[in-house]
């Protein structure tokens, strides 16, 4: 996006694959303070609107025989509901709205981010880290509230031989605290990498000889990104379910 503006600096071939991730005020110029309406705000709002359109407007007819939009809404509902129920059991169904919120936001932010000139909120570590830490703290607090001190048995692998258990406990604790990091970086990294790669291929399109190849590569990457957008939303959600299951049933 910014690449065209100052192509003179590198003589034709310019790569600014990271410029698409710049957060800037949506209305006018100025500094970005916490309440400024930025491009991030706008694309998050579009994701909210898309969720509203699909799940509320799409189901407004409440037909017993669903139309197209309602089918998709029901499919999404059934998909996440079944996931929560399968992984967390019946007790987990209570937390279904939270998990559904995360899934719908991520999936729509990812897909909307694939529109040309779009901004992808989920490519930012601040966004994914907030969600991952919300899950981490929520699940940890829930685990202690539900199970008391016996939640700590999550780290004490009772099926392992006794001498191994302290070592395993250490590994388990480390892996537990690494969870939010991997949880957030996985999503942000995937989204960022795909968009940046597409941008790099787009930069190559400036050379006429390579342009057709570049366009083919962009198309292929775009297809892959569509897949990745859904899969990463799915992975984020299913990991949330797994962490929630640990909080509800900490005993191995």
């Amino acid at each position: 996006m910014a690449a065209e503006a100052h192509g003179e600096e590198a003589g034709g071939l310019v790569f600014h694959p990271m410029d698409q991730f710049i957060v800037e005020p949506f209305f006018g110029d100025g500094a970005v303070s916490w309440y400024t309406i930025t491009n991030a705000t706008v694309w998050m709002a579009l994701a909210v609107l898309a969720v509203f359109a699909l799940l509320v407007l799409g189901t407004s007819k409440r037909s017993v025989v669903p139309g197209r939009m309602q089918s998709v809404a029901e499919l999404a509902y059934g998909f996440i509901y079944k996931m929560v129920e399968d992984i967390c059991g019946k007790e987990g169904v209570k937390y279904f709205p939270y998990i559904m919120t995360l899934f719908m936001f991520i999936v729509f932010a990812n897909f909307l981010g694939l529109l040309p000139m779009a901004f992808t909120p989920t490519s930012h570590i601040a966004v994914t880290a907030l969600m991952a830490f919300a899950v981490f703290f929520g699940v940890t607090i829930l685990g202690f509230v539900k199970n008391g001190a016996s939640f700590l048995s999550l780290f004490w692998v009772s099926s392992a031989p006794l001498p191994l258990r302290p070592i395993l406990a250490l590994i388990e604790i480390i892996s537990y605290f690494v969870r939010p990091v991997s949880h957030s970086i996985r999503l942000a990294g995937n989204m960022m990498a795909g968009h940046a790669v597409i941008k790099v291929f787009a930069g190559f399109a400036a050379i006429a000889a390579i342009a057709p190849l570049s366009i083919v590569a962009i198309t292929a990457m775009y297809g892959l990104e569509i897949l990745v957008s859904f899969i990463q939303a799915y992975v984020f959600t299913i990991l949330t379910c797994v962490y929630l299951k640990d909080a509800l049933h900490p005993h191995h």
Binding site: V23, W34, T38, A40, M44, H124, A126, L130
Partner: peptide
């Protein structure tokens, strides 16, 4: 930009 994104994410 963290503050801005976190604020609007929470809103969203």
């Amino acid at each position: 930009w963290f503050g801005n994104q976190i604020f609007w994410l929470v809103v969203a």
